[in-house]
Design a protein around this nucleic acid. Structure first.
Lengths: 365, 365
DNA sequence: AATTAGCACTGACAGTCCAAGAGTGCTAAA
DNA sequence: TTTAGCACTCTTGGACTGTCAGTGCTAATT
């Protein structure tokens, strides 16, 4: 019988660790006898039983029912992650596999993220996600226009974060090269570099003047700019290996699984979750630590990807509470390391494709 | 006892239809008694039993076990879809709901497709997909460059199908406006309008010459062009409402569900499936009619979206064999109708944003 | 000849009971 | 403080049961 709040003894820690690791490996409640036999713990099962009872009293373990072994509680996992975790030493095979998969292509950030997500899912056997946070205070740095034909041109917008978006625009009037160039000029003069709250009525009036014959474009263009700044692009997220969820019996409850898949598809909750956790400097969200209800029985482990001190993305893993935290954290480290490298050390070639996407458009005016 | 191959009698058709529709509604095997009581069929249960036995002999019905009712076989569904299907009359409420959801935004094709997918999933209660076929024989019609700073510029490629893709490119040499313009010129002169097999060694030599100091860009640029032409964009697919699968008990087998989710994520199989079915002028693929193994117990119903006689996309639904084909087909019709309208009758504004996406890129050289 | 009532039969399903097994808490001894 | 031992608890799986839905077949009816 221990005093409450007394720190855990060495042996208690050892037992807690053993219980958690066994449970992570097997998914089943672990009993005192099992520990004696499989983990070399130098005490009898009776002693272990006593200690486990104490650990339960302290809230680190739980018992599904009287005659079952113990499973870790959320607090148990939390303590484990914060204190007990040993760094997982990746096998050379694992390292090789990752290298193999990731060297393939030095692509764009989006592509890198989705590839990283694939790799992560494949290596960890959990569902992996990659997210790209929206950039809220972006501003259009430059406009560019490309004339397609008499009635259509492409508007290219480059944001301060160097995001690029292009739109095909159709107008009813005749368009010559000059008027198309004029549109770009006008936009660059009036809108470029301004935040949305700086785009005031007088600015718009001037823009209208500069557009000359194309005055009627003001509102539609403004709409595009607005859409771009408040990008649909923000909070992009990518899920890989959803089917992995079904590998774990904890997701055999249809009702729950259904909801989880729903949230994974919806993306909002997860993106929010990650950005909040990141604020708290935390990389591991265990069960109900998140306030997303359907994540109650799941853990989320992620690692942000930074560039110039700014978070430009994250790779993560979603799985049951009994996630192999050590291994996942190690794998995430190497995977995100690869990406950071790609971003920083351009390939041997002189040319480094940035991230892009493409757009297809066909419509008449 | 009927002759083999004799066409089905009126009554047999009626019974088959009743069985299928009951099964679609309830998911349970339907028995003779049930039909007498709930569907007004003017025969005794014994007669119906005899007819059902005959229908089973002909391969339209199956019996899960001796003392269960009958369920439709794949052939049964096929016959139903081809012959027995009555047009589903949508309720005004349904029509309104769709209108409501789809009027919201006249956006880009990609966005429209994904919205349509959402609407379809919400209305049908099945998992919905939208696909955009790749454009295999696309060619780069025009190149455009935008200088960012001394070491970086953006390359904009516009394909013959008016797809637009932009890439940020970093080089080690100093870049002035002129050399950036030169790059575009060179590309336009040498590469634009050519299929890949027309880009031969002499062409590349000339390109090198024209690039002047930037000769070393040839290969990297070529790589980009190649990537663009064989676009990662091709075969884009979008899945909405995966969680709906779990609404149907036929997907309670974990193993199977896992595989199905896997294929939905992988996308390739489905895209292939749709494009093949479309060749056969078919909109309904029932179970093992597809050669995708995991689709054995699922049906796929879709409807292509055409523009100027070319298929530019498709919306579809994936669900259990006992899908409500009539309703799904009707809903798909209206949803795709909406999209076609959007493509053809531009909004009241003068400006029609085409489809686009955006790219973000930050890297140093 | 076609239909139907009636009946024996079949197989799934849900419930009950039981024995086995795993693991515990507690007591008393080391 | 640790441990051996034992009684106790609870789950799990198997065997057995009765019920029930639905059938196929036969004989009677139209």
């Amino acid at each position: 019988m221990q005093e409450v709040n007394k720190p855990l003894s060495q042996r208690q820690k050892q037992i807690l660790k053993a219980v958690i690791e066994s449970h992570i490996a097997n998914g089943e409640p672990v009993g005192s006898k099992y520990l004696v036999e499989n983990k070399q713990i130098a005490s009898s099962s009776a002693t272990i039983r006593n200690e486990m009872a104490e650990l339960e009293r302290r809230g680190y373990l739980e018992q599904p029912h009287t005659s079952a072994g113990r499973i870790p509680s959320e607090a148990g996992y939390r303590f484990y992650v914060d204190t007990l975790l040993e760094e997982y030493a990746m096998t050379t095979r694992e390292i090789q596999e990752i290298n193999e998969m990731m060297k393939a292509k030095v692509g764009e950030l989006d592509q890198n993220l989705s590839m990283a997500s694939k790799v992560t899912s494949a290596m960890t056997h959990y569902t992996a996600i990659s997210v790209k946070p929206g950039d809220r205070q972006a501003v259009v740095k430059r406009f560019q226009t490309v004339r397609l034909d008499n009635h259509r041109f492409i508007l290219v917008m480059i944001s301060s974060t160097e995001a690029v978006q292009s739109k095909t625009i159709s107008v009813q009037d005749e368009l010559d090269e000059q008027s198309v160039a004029q549109i770009a000029e006008a936009l660059n003069a009036c809108i470029a570099g301004k935040r949305e709250d700086e785009i005031t009525a007088p600015v718009l009036v001037e823009l209208g003047d500069r557009l000359g014959t194309n005055t009627s474009l003001v509102m539609p263009l403004l709409k595009l700019v607005h859409a771009f700044m408040n990008g649909d692009d923000s909070g992009k997220m990518n899920v890989t290996g959803m089917d992995r969820l079904l590998d774990y019996p904890e997701y055999s409850d249809m009702q729950e699984l259904r909801q989880l898949i729903g949230t994974l598809e919806d993306k909002n909750d997860i993106v929010k979750l990650i950005s909040e956790a990141e604020k708290d400097q935390s990389n591991v969200v265990i069960g109900s630590e998140s306030d997303v209800k359907v994540m109650e029985n799941s853990s989320l482990v992620f690692r942000p990807i930074q560039k110039d001190g700014k978070t430009i993305g994250a790779i993560g893993v979603i799985g049951p509470l009994r996630m192999d935290y050590a291994r996942v954290l190690a794998l995430l480290d190497t995977v995100t390391g690869h990406i950071t490298n790609m971003l920083e050390e351009p390939s041997s070639a002189k040319l480094i494709p940035g991230e892009t996407e493409q757009a297809q458009s066909k419509e008449n005016s």
